[in-house]
Design a protein around this nucleic acid. Structure first.
Lengths: 148, 148
DNA sequence: TTAATTACTACCAATTAGATAGTATATGTG
DNA sequence: CACATATACTATCTAATTGGTAGTAATTAA
């Protein structure tokens, strides 16, 4: 029941892109630097995000990444599912054939419901909101530094 | 985001006990046999359940396990937290000191909310309900066999 | 005393997580 | 065209976790 760093880094990457949506595309290395994440590692995380159609990328000099659609159209569920594979908690929920007890199992329904609720919650948060929070917090910490 | 077999086995163990609550205590090996779980492995899982005060145990001949309180007073959250340690998705939610970005982090609040919702959902299910479902399903599969 | 049961400790194999490294490929610019 | 710079891809590595086995100690009813 731990969220992998892959998902967390992915969300941070996407939020960074969301902050500049419509303005410009960003270099991976810059995001990695400002988020204090290994660039090489982040470059692996980015691949499934592109495969899922969440981001656009441009190679070569002055290339970079940008969101494939509006921040308010991208939820945490999109990101986590792209990176985590399936969000469902136990395999038997989606693939009953993998467990011959599926028909008798009293808990299977419960795991299914729980999985749905988790997806629901993840879907209720868009990176648009996260970007706003990020900008706000950045501003605050900036003025805090100024005062000091 | 996968639920460990430890948690799943633990829930099945507890549900089996709930089915006999007030009637008798059960031997671990019998539960292991009927649930098709390795007895040795299950005997490890049981330890934290006892430590959490969810079950009583009696050693020696005619010993066994029984629930420490009524099935409707035991939720999935009790079991999962006993076995999984903490249900929270990211460490920084409970221990902000482990991440020096906690104050600026825009996603931390989200993980916190998600964790609460998961706990809420887990808490909404008691093993009393699971025991009822289990008894029902067992009955059905029994009659199904008879018909055949 | 003995058989049966839980309690405890140690170990082990396979998988996954979290990276690092190097190379290939594309592209804007001089 | 050449070159600097960026993404794309593949391989590898280490540490932690997962899922499980094995053996022994302690307890208790008969």
């Amino acid at each position: 029941m731990k969220l992998s760093t892959k998902s967390r880094y992915g969300v941070r990457f996407m939020t960074a892109l969301a902050c500049e949506y419509g303005e410009k595309s960003l270099f991976l290395k810059d995001i990695a630097a400002s988020e204090e994440i290994s660039g090489k590692y982040l470059s692996l995380i980015v691949i499934p995000l592109r495969a899922a159609g969440l981001i656009n990328s441009l190679r070569g000099a002055n290339g970079g990444y940008s969101l494939a659609r509006a921040p308010r159209e991208i939820t945490l569920c999109d990101i986590v599912e792209a990176l985590e594979g399936e969000t469902c908690l136990v395999r038997c929920v989606k693939q009953p054939s993998t467990c011959d007890r599926a028909a008798i199992c009293p808990t299977r329904d419960t795991w299914s419901v729980l999985g749905n609720k988790i997806r629901e919650t993840l879907n209720s948060v868009t990176i648009d909101e996260l970007a706003k929070i990020k900008k706000e917090k950045n501003k605050k910490s900036a003025t805090a530094l100024t005062i000091m």
